[in-house]
Design a protein around this nucleic acid. Sequence first.
DNA 1: AAGTAGACTTACTGAAAAGTAAGATTAGAG
DNA 2: CTCTAATCTTACTTTTCAGTAAGTCTACTT
Lengths: 216, 216
Amino acid sequence: MDRTRKRLPRSVREREIVEAALRVFARHGYHAAVVDEIAELAGISKPMVYLYLGSKERLFVACVQHASRTLTVAFRDAAASGDEPELRLWRGLSAFFHFVAEHRDSWVLLHRQAPELSAAITDELAAARASVLAEVGALVRRGIEEGGADARLGAVDADFVAHTLVGAADSLADWMAGHPDETPERVALRLMNMIWLGMRDVLDGELWTPPPPPAE
Amino acid sequence: MDRTRKRLPRSVREREIVEAALRVFARHGYHAAVVDEIAELAGISKPMVYLYLGSKERLFVACVQHASRTLTVAFRDAAASGDEPELRLWRGLSAFFHFVAEHRDSWVLLHRQAPELSAAITDELAAARASVLAEVGALVRRGIEEGGADARLGAVDADFVAHTLVGAADSLADWMAGHPDETPERVALRLMNMIWLGMRDVLDGELWTPPPPPAE
DNA sequence: AAGTAGACTTACTGAAAAGTAAGATTAGAG
DNA sequence: CTCTAATCTTACTTTTCAGTAAGTCTACTT
């Protein structure tokens, strides 16, 4: 990648290796990712990767932690400011779309891995995903409480909404890739309007229910 | 798997191989999946897989086509019946959740693969995913039109809603795995209420917009 | 200038897994 | 019963890739 064959201190090189690994793991998935390719992308030879990061598995875990930390921080910072719950939710969603659009690899790394991997990796991924969902769930929960809902809706429902939002956002990130004119803010706004207005109605007690079957 | 070492006609054996491959590919992803494991699960030895299906890549494509066909048919059948657009949408979503819960492997195979695979596989996956989205999009579009919306909302918006629904449903399938008391119908109903009521408001012209920033 | 610690490489080993060659077994037709 | 075609297997070859041994090179200290 870089023609300047410069020697770098360990801390810097480690960061570069993790960044390169993030890209390769996201593009190919854990198993298909080749350590040699990661090394080449980092401008270094393979034994350096093993010297600094230990093994392919630990390198992957380091990537997951990096991606998870970055995403959580970006989201929390954006969602912390603002007085009204709607505003906070919108800012959080905007930040989320910004993140997913700009750091596509991190999101893909966390959410597009095959189910069965080693226990260490599975645990780390589960923790990272749970962290995102907890962040969104907390935001929704505060929105529901401060938005003036009665106590009918409990933790289960905030969790439900959080899953809905995260899943929708994931899918809409793909949609954005095919609509380059759309900004993260506009997408977040549209999603807001669908979810939030509907949720408000539901909180007000309005429900659509299917008609009973004619005969059974 | 089966102790009765019975010889089976090619057509039957092929079906069994594809079903076994579907499970293994879904669990491990394309690259980490091992053909020997697929063969063992199908109760057969590896060369049979190659004799009947040609190569690992073509076997995967066969799996994708199988999963895509099954899903599309199940969804279309369920969503075809019903007079009102809401009812059709609800039935379609219910069928979708049923499918994802019962044929988890098929869904995972289609939607949890690493981005960079061979051109043949990428194309097949893209076609399958587009097929699902087109199906959902058509349902939403009819719902919008017959639901009495003016013509403001065009194809782009149905597409947007379709992506939202599919993404949310994908994520909620995970959520369902941790809530075994929830039925696909109940989940579909809740999602309906969030999306449909919100969409109705949006179609009626009601919009939430963020307040302008204080100074810029 | 000499020594040394840390950054870095070439060149290997061993295991895993895609794909194949060559032939064994069995169900059914004549 | 015999022949044949289809089903199925054992036992390879070859490639790819994680991980390592055995150093070399260079920046910095004293």
